[in-house]
């Protein structure tokens, strides 16, 4: 069953047609990669899913809910979480607090004036947060400030912040950008584990190594249109993809 359906999405910035007639179907429980050269419109497309940009025409439907016109926080509340290219975390708060906030947002909704009870008495929330930190192997640092983490650890923290909300769809924008090879491999392993638990993921990625170790389906974007959508093995051999993406070089 398709959990995210994108139909005929167009987006124009001044004279630039960033997206033209993009169609996409993300199946529940799969890892769907979107690849393409720089400027192909990958991030624009992702921004249309999370409410940062509004497409000019077309529709984006998630689980029978149209995402168009919804604000970012409303889209998160229906079950879509996003990981950014540069980790967006709460720098001057502890790791535990970083994960506690999304857990509270999931439980209490987008606004609640919960000013009387103490956070330290929220045992259920803390246990869930610690469990998610353990999942990304950061539970040993739960009292440290997030700003002190390495790039790779920041990414894992951001993933924990998304996972604690148990989203139905997880969007990842270049999850390994700017990482060392070791960090990249760790992140791939982590994402594989998340995928094995049945999480639906959409991954935007440059690194072919990452894409082919994770993706179950790949859409190739070039100049704002989907030029191919298929299984990884087929994409590897598709001459159009090689032409558009790799300038004719072989993988």
């Amino acid at each position: 069953m398709s959990i995210l359906t994108v139909e005929n999405v167009n987006k124009r910035f001044g004279g630039l047609q960033a997206l033209s007639n993009v169609n996409l179907q993300v199946e529940e429980g799969t890892v769907h990669a979107i690849i393409g050269p720089n400027g192909a419109g990958k991030s624009t497309l992702l921004n249309c899913f999370v409410g940062r940009l509004e497409p000019d025409t077309g529709s984006v439907v998630f689980n029978d809910v149209s995402l168009l016109g919804l604000k970012p926080h409303q889209i998160n509340q229906v079950g879509v979480s996003r990981v950014f290219q540069t980790p967006e975390i709460f720098d001057d708060m502890s790791l535990l607090e970083n994960v506690t906030i999304p857990a509270l947002a999931k439980r209490d909704g987008s606004f609640k004036l919960n000013a009387w009870n103490a956070v330290r008495d929220e045992n259920g929330i803390r246990d869930a947060a610690m469990e998610c930190l353990a999942d990304v192997e950061l539970d040993g640092k739960s009292d440290e400030l997030a700003r002190a983490l390495s790039r790779g650890d920041k990414r894992r923290l951001e993933l924990a912040m998304c996972l604690v909300q148990e989203p139905k769809l997880l969007l990842l924008d270049e999850p390994t950008a700017g990482m060392s090879r070791a960090d990249t491999n760790n992140t791939i392993e982590l994402m594989k584990r998340i995928a094995e638990n049945g999480m639906t993921m959409v991954v935007i990625e440059h690194d072919m190594h990452v894409v082919f170790s994770l993706a179950e389906k790949i859409s190739v974007l070039a100049q704002g249109t989907v030029i191919a959508e298929d299984l990884p093995d087929k994409i590897k051999g598709d001459p159009r993809v090689q032409e558009a993406y790799l300038g004719g070089a072989h993988l």
């Binding site: 999370v50 604000k71 970012p72 926080h73 998160n76 509340q77 979480s81 996003r82 950014f84 967006e88 975390i89 709460f90 720098d91 001057d92 708060m93 607090e97 906030i101 999304p102 947002a105 999931k106 909704g109 987008s110 606004f111 912040m161 909300q165």
Partner: peptide, 16 residues
């Protein structure tokens, strides 16, 4: 305190 720290993350965490 989250408002002070990172409003962008707050929004994408489902908070208004």
């Amino acid at each position: 305190r989250a408002v002070k720290s990172n409003q962008n993350r707050m929004r994408y965490t489902g908070l208004n």
